[in-house]
């Protein structure tokens, strides 16, 4: 199996704040890795480093064979990495001035120079796949939160990524819409997509993850199969975190 993400001794600071401490992490092709942890623990920062939205200060990072240098170093591989890594944000970040379909067509046409007819076909197919083919001509603001997030997933998939990053994709959703987004993600995982997911949805983590990683104050404290991490956590910080989030 090939490694899609390889982090070695990665450190990241926000000013003086040491947010990621010596992170060693690999993600295999086809693997679904769910990252959990309290807010402010650095889990979002971790996945934002993978596609270079956050630069890091030291250590090694390789994404699908492309090495990405720390801050100040050669960032040439960034474009290649971003073409191959899709990202879904907590706040959707759809383009409000474009229709749903144009949101999906933009990147393939601009980045890969895909002809419009082809991009159009891909967009229609992807909208079908995320279950909102009938909303193609609407603008993002006319859609519900759950629908918007599904468009965001389709938009990322249009670039045919080798890896998908999910940064708390359901945290901004009304409770009744969380399910429809998780369903799409579940399907994606089943089809073999490599995924790194930051989430507070412990049920989803338990069911879909191949591996769960618990981060505390910028460090990987616990890592393992979901049943091991959830049912038999070794570290007391993991135990106390889980007892707090699983109680309700």
């Amino acid at each position: 199996m090939s490694q899609i993400v390889k982090m070695q001794g990665m450190n990241k600071y926000f000013g003086k704040l040491h947010v990621l401490k010596d992170i060693d992490l690999t993600v295999e092709a086809g693997e679904v890795v769910v990252i959990i942890g309290a807010s402010g623990s650095g889990k979002s920062t971790l996945i934002r480093c993978v596609n270079g939205l956050e630069p890091f200060e030291s250590g090694k990072l390789e994404v699908d064979g492309h090495p990405l240098a720390p801050k100040g170093g050669n960032q040439k591989s960034l474009t290649e990495i971003r073409k191959e890594v899709g990202m879904v944000f907590q706040q959707f970040n759809l383009f409000p001035h474009l229709t749903v379909k144009k949101n999906i067509m933009l990147a393939p046409m601009k980045v890969k120079k895909t002809p419009q007819v082809v991009a159009n076909g891909t967009a229609e197919r992807l909208l079908q796949r995320v279950g909102i083919a009938d909303q193609a001509k609407k603008y993002p603001s006319q859609l519900s939160g759950g629908q918007q997030q599904r468009v965001a997933i389709a938009r990322a998939l249009a670039m045919e990524p080798r890896l998908m990053l999910f940064d708390e994709p359901t945290s901004a959703l009304d409770p009744e819409m969380i399910g429809e987004v998780l369903d799409v993600m579940r399907e994606l995982a089943k089809e073999g997509m490599t995924m790194m997911v930051v989430t507070h949805e412990m049920g989803f983590a338990r069911e879909v993850a191949d591996r769960v990683i618990y981060i505390h104050e910028g460090q990987v404290v616990e890592e393992g199969k979901p049943e091991d991490v959830f049912d038999n956590p070794q570290n007391e910080r993991t135990q106390s975190f889980l007892s707090r989030v699983l109680k309700h």
């Binding site: 939205l53 990202m87 944000f89 990147a107």
Partner: peptide, 18 residues
């Protein structure tokens, strides 16, 4: 304009100019 818009564009592989 929210910086999430720029992040979304960059994450899709668009250059800063695009």
């Amino acid at each position: 304009i929210d910086k999430g818009q720029t992040e979304a564009g960059l994450s899709l592989g668009l250059s800063r100019t695009q």
